[in-house]
Amino acid sequence: MKQKLYDIAHSRAGDKGNTLTLSLIPYDEKDYERLCQVATTERVKAHLNEIVLGEITRYELPNIASLLFVCEQALAGGVTTSFSMDPHGKTLSYALLEMEI
């Protein structure tokens, strides 16, 4: 069976206007290097292409062995005026974790 990000990492979604933030945190800090290699900006952008319309910036935080993806134009115009079911994009952490590795 193919492995998904869900199997080795966890994530929390946050919102700022029309920008979605997704952390990606390995359960085992030893998997941090591997995450850096498999969860590239390009791969995450391709995986979330129906959700994130703008740029994705990846921040590496070796101090806490975690990655942070900042995704622009991802919340249907912004939390306050979007009429999607989940305007904050709170469920989208689990969309990232669906990515196969």
Binding site: K16, S23, Y59, L61
Partner: peptide, 17 residues
């Protein structure tokens, strides 16, 4: 624990620097 703290540290952060 470290996992809850890390998730919250990065919550809604658009530039950790």
């Amino acid at each position: 624990n470290l996992a809850t703290a890390k998730e919250q540290l990065l919550y809604e952060v658009t530039n950790p620097y």
